[in-house]
């Protein structure tokens, strides 16, 4: 028996919105520790990794580890039937063919349940080493979204350069070129969540497809902060912490000049 209850059901809506344009089908693994999902996009250029700890749920029970093969677009359709203030409960048997979703309005006046058919999904699970990155940038997620959106109008590839002073995002295209530099905040600059913080061992410059960075920014509503982890010649990690429950991280392979 698997049962997971989230008072803030809208969180689940936001999570699926953040994944479904990149990944169509995915296995969500449920264990005593919580929910995890790892899935690559169809071209195997990027990967999305979701982690929701059991302690972040209002109620969590998982007697036996199970894998839920989900069509994310279909799950998104069902979650659209939930109100934004609804409590959402997920339920499945030990060898499930379906996932039950129950939505309860805050005053308990409306209770609905839906069953989503599960699928057998063959996926390749990639082993991602726990690595120390040369640069870690923490910045407001809305700022990152704006930069990616603005630069995508000009070209396809973004050069991200991180130094101690700041992070530079550069693009060039047929119409011209552009740069946006965000500088490290000084300690006195306002709210923690509005700050740009850079931890750097050595400067890093990497090239990335803006199209994919744009997919990742669908996670912006999940939190005020995004973290970018970079080292030379390896995939970037774009991490959105989800307050009190876990995180969603995207890995994107760089473009390399050959």
């Amino acid at each position: 028996m698997f049962e997971a209850r989230l008072t803030e059901g809208s969180l689940l809506k936001k999570i699926i919105e953040a994944i479904k344009d990149l990944v169509q089908e995915a296995n969500v693994d449920c264990s005593e520790e919580g929910l995890t999902m790892q899935a690559m996009d169809a071209s195997h250029v990027s990967l999305c990794s979701l982690n929701m700890r059991h302690g972040g749920f209002d109620h969590y029970r998982c007697d036996r580890s199970i894998s839920l093969g989900l069509n994310l677009a279909n799950l998104g359709k069902i979650l659209k039937c939930a109100g934004n203030d609804d409590v959402v409960t997920l339920k499945a048997e030990d060898e499930p063919d379906t996932l039950t979703l129950m939505f309860e309005s805050p005053n308990q006046e409306r209770i609905s349940d839906f069953e989503l058919k599960l699928m057998d999904i063959e996926t390749e699970h990639l082993g991602i080493p726990n690595e120390e990155y040369k640069c870690t940038i923490s910045m407001p997620s809305g700022e990152f979204q704006r930069i990616v959106r603005d630069l995508a109008v000009i070209g396809e590839t973004c050069i991200i350069t991180c130094t101690k002073e700041g992070v530079k995002f550069s693009v060039s295209g047929d119409l011209g070129n552009g740069n946006v530099t965000v500088r490290q905040s000084s300690a006195a600059d306002g709210d923690e969540k509005d700050q740009v913080k850079i931890q750097m061992e050595e400067p890093v410059t990497l090239n990335f497809a803006l199209r994919y960075l744009g997919f990742f920014t669908k996670a912006t509503p999940l939190g005020s902060t995004v973290k970018l982890h970079m080292s030379p010649d390896v995939p970037i990690v774009v991490e959105y912490p989800i307050d009190g429950i876990g995180s969603i991280s995207y890995f994107l392979a760089p473009k390399i000049d050959e």
Binding site: L126, I128, P235, A253
Partner: peptide
């Protein structure tokens, strides 16, 4: 020219 790498060339299947 710039070439888009795939993730499989960085991470191995587990």
């Amino acid at each position: 020219a710039m070439q888009q790498k795939r993730l499989d060339s960085f991470f191995k299947p587990s």
